[in-house]
Simulated scan of single mutants.
Amino acid sequence: MKLGSLIDSDFIITGKEFGSVVDAVNSLIELFDKKKILTASTDIVKTKTLDREKLGGTLLPPGIAMPHARVEGVDDLIIGVWVPPKPLETDDGIVKILFFFLTSIAGSSLYLPMLSSIAKSCMDDKFFNKLISSNKDEVHKLLNSVILKQEVTVEDIMTPNPLTCSKDTSLSDLADLFYQKGLSYLPVVDKNMKQIGEVTIKDILNRGVPDYIRRMGSVKFLKNLESFEALLRDEDKIFIKDIMRKPTRSISKDASVIEAVVLITGKGHRHLPVLDHGKLVGLLSETDILKKVIRG
């Protein structure tokens, strides 16, 4: 199946400027309504879309906005495209092209494969630059060259090119990275992106609690943070290789989403390194599944 076959060329807007993503989406909704394909009123559709965007928009590199909403009565999937004459600056980042999706309340089996196909195609700079500089007919023709895969795999919902660390990263730099990026887990890789370990915030905390304290029957009497003071004093001298653990989990990029869910729920993992022939290519978290599948 080709991507262009799912997009009506009348629902592609090029050369027109809008002040916001919401304005562009509202204009596409009006086009849907003119074609008499909406079973709900435009006001309801606009409200549903705005409510969904308030939960957090989807903006993929290199500037692909993907607002979407689930509306009762929509027949599977309706898609609109807007190519701004110049990039639009938003709070989420710079928008160079927008794909708007309306699906039924139950969602569409094509939604995730479509997101994946669009993201992969737009990673090709030549394709993407041509797409954002074309007129309506040319955009539709380009989209019709994109083959839509039918199955949904881990690769479709993972975070590609995730942050990693090396065994020689200091504990100080690791703590800064966790703090600044809001992370709690990082894969440890070698120069070839092969995973050689993993490290979590818990591993840092463990370093601050000596073994002799763990052997005590009770630690209620310990009121100071002397052990952590020692950790902070030596954090530039402690390295990830001193605290990391051997890899305990991973999943193939070609694995099914259900397989990932079973691993996460059955083993208690919050993150899964994603591998391709032994090389780390992504990271899948329980939050990815929530955002892209449950609330996608």
Rank of each mutant, 00 (worst) to 15 (best):
L6D: 04
S9N: 14
I12F: 01
E17G: 00
V21Y: 08
V21Q: 15
N26V: 07
L28N: 06
I29E: 09
D33Y: 04
K36F: 12
K36Y: 09
I37W: 06
V45P: 00
T49K: 02
R52L: 07
R52T: 05
E53K: 03
G56T: 09
G57P: 09
G57S: 14
P61D: 13
P67G: 07
H68E: 11
E72L: 12
W82I: 04
V83K: 01
K86E: 15
K86M: 10
L88E: 09
F100W: 02
T103N: 05
T103P: 03
S104K: 14
S104N: 12
S104C: 03
G107V: 08
L112D: 03
P113M: 09
I118P: 04
D125A: 09
F127H: 06
N129A: 07
L131V: 05
N135P: 01
E138T: 01
V139R: 06
L142H: 04
L142F: 08
N144G: 11
N144V: 02
V146N: 02
L148E: 10
E151H: 07
V152Q: 01
V152S: 13
V154D: 12
V154F: 14
D156C: 05
T164G: 14
T164D: 14
S170M: 05
D173K: 05
D176H: 07
Y179W: 09
L183C: 08
Y185S: 06
L186Y: 13
P187C: 09
V188T: 02
E198Q: 15
V199H: 10
K202E: 13
L205G: 03
N206A: 15
V209G: 00
V209Y: 00
D211V: 12
R215F: 11
M216I: 01
A230P: 03
D236W: 13
K237H: 11
I243Y: 12
M244V: 10
P247R: 09
T248R: 13
R249K: 12
A255R: 00
T265R: 01
H271M: 05
P273V: 12
G278H: 05
L283T: 11
V293A: 15
